[in-house]
Amino acid sequence: MKCWLSFLLVIIVFVILNACGVDNDEGSDSEDTSLSGKENEGNTRDEVVPISVELKNGEGEKVGTADLEQQFSGVVIKIKASNLSPGKHGFHIHEKGVCEEPDFKSAGDHFNPTDVSHGEQEDGPHAGDLPNLQVGEDGTVETDITTEKVTLKSGEENSLIGSDGTTLIIHEKADDHKSQPSGDAGDRSACGVISHGS
């Protein structure tokens, strides 16, 4: 009789421990799913929509496109352009959503919501400062740039969807990332509106 009771107790303990183990596993799965959900919060397609920008030169001719997409690492800018002069060209986000030909001065200065210095300075760079574009001998460039300093989410201080809008500008020369206020990058060769001012 005692043997049967002992055997029964062992089975009951085994079943209880097994059940606890299953519960713990299920809890782990549930937690993982929750974390995945959190990673995707605020980045649904209906909340942060990718933006396609058409780049035109001072004569109004299309020279390229830039696709902007919000990702967890920042805003990814995929640019593809042609009919540019070979070499390095300054590439920036400017503070106004207007591209008036031929000089594009209507786009204002670099996007700089935190009022800091340009380039490689102690209090820099501007939110709109981007790496130079390296244009090939055939006048084309195709590259991806990721910037953590801006967002496509509206309502943020560094949002590219503000009341004044924003633009992308390609300059005729390289940005030295030191000269103030814009890196001595020369004239504005191409412009594209990211968002219009309200």
Rank of each mutant, 00 (worst) to 15 (best):
K62M: 11
V63G: 00
T65H: 08
L68T: 00
L68W: 01
Q70M: 02
G74N: 05
G74C: 06
G74K: 03
K78I: 01
I79L: 15
I79W: 00
K80M: 10
S82P: 07
N83V: 06
L84I: 14
L84W: 08
P86D: 03
H89N: 11
G90C: 09
G90D: 08
F91Q: 01
H92P: 00
I93A: 01
H94R: 14
K96H: 15
E100I: 14
E101Q: 11
E101C: 02
D103F: 13
F104D: 05
G108L: 11
D109H: 10
D109L: 08
P113T: 14
T114K: 15
T114A: 11
D115C: 04
V116I: 13
S117K: 15
Q121G: 13
P125K: 04
H126L: 02
D129F: 01
D129V: 11
L130W: 07
L130D: 00
P131G: 14
L133D: 14
V135P: 03
V135E: 03
V135T: 04
G136L: 08
E137N: 12
E137Q: 12
G139W: 11
E142Y: 09
T143P: 01
D144V: 06
E148P: 12
K149T: 09
T151H: 04
S154A: 15
E157V: 15
S159H: 06
I161V: 11
